[in-house]
Computed example of a mutant assay.
Amino acid sequence: MNYILADNQELTRFALENLLQQDETAVVYRAFDKAGLVALLKEHESAIVILDYTLFDFTDEDQLLIVAERFALSQWVLLSEDLTSRFLRRVVYSSHQFSVVFKDGPMQEIREALQSASRHNRYISQRALEAIISQQQEEDEQPSVLTNTETEIVKAIAQGKTTKEIASERFSSVHTITTHRKNIFRKLGVNTAHEVVKYALRAGLIDSSEFYI
């Protein structure tokens, strides 16, 4: 069985490698960006991909689904600290290739997800399932209104500025800006900065002339 670790968190990658190597037949490859992942999938089309979506360079779930569809024999285990209910519904409803577990969940869930993927079945953790079921109507509701500060931070994100740069310009701590970013992501129901900008453009929160990334 071929596995592709697409997780840029070193500690998690180390733990997963040790877990997978308990199976002497497992062959583990590493991917550090989308291009590298696609290259490995070309060589190992039926591999199991273990992906932390929030730490990888997929711009949105559409791009993720396109890659999964392109390599239809592959199985994917999404392993992240947190994923929005909107993202979970979109991915889970669009493809049976995806299993979902969380990094702070029980080890048994991760084992079961990997076992299910090896049998070409999917595994949805209880936490992910509850998020999907309990918020079915969330997509039809308007997100919470961004504050003026949050809108300004969205503009800065659109200009390609880092959290550190935004904190410096606003005379704030990196921790404060990180908290604002998390609140923005939660309100807009997104997982990445690119998705924030796409939403902000559609909603008219920022002008297209401010979009630089």
Rank of each mutant, 00 (worst) to 15 (best):
Y3G: 01
D7P: 00
Q9S: 12
E10A: 13
L11T: 04
T12M: 07
F14W: 08
A15P: 00
L16Q: 00
D23Y: 12
A26G: 10
V28G: 09
R30A: 07
F32Y: 11
D33I: 02
D33S: 11
D33C: 03
G36Q: 14
L37D: 07
V38T: 08
A39W: 05
H44Q: 13
I48N: 02
L51N: 01
D60S: 10
D60Q: 07
I66G: 09
E69F: 03
E69P: 03
V77W: 00
V77K: 03
L79T: 03
S80T: 13
E81M: 06
D82I: 14
L83P: 03
R89Q: 12
V91I: 14
V92G: 04
Y93F: 13
S94I: 06
S95V: 04
Q97S: 07
S99H: 06
D104M: 14
M107F: 13
Q108Y: 07
Q108R: 05
R111F: 13
Q115P: 00
A117Q: 05
R127S: 05
E130A: 11
A131Y: 05
Q135D: 12
E141V: 12
Q142T: 15
P143N: 01
L146I: 01
T147H: 01
T147A: 12
E152A: 14
S172L: 13
V174M: 05
H175N: 11
T176Q: 12
T176C: 09
H180I: 04
H180S: 09
K182N: 13
K182L: 07
V190E: 06
V190P: 04
A193I: 09
H194Y: 10
K198R: 13
A203P: 02
D207G: 04
S208C: 09
Y212M: 14
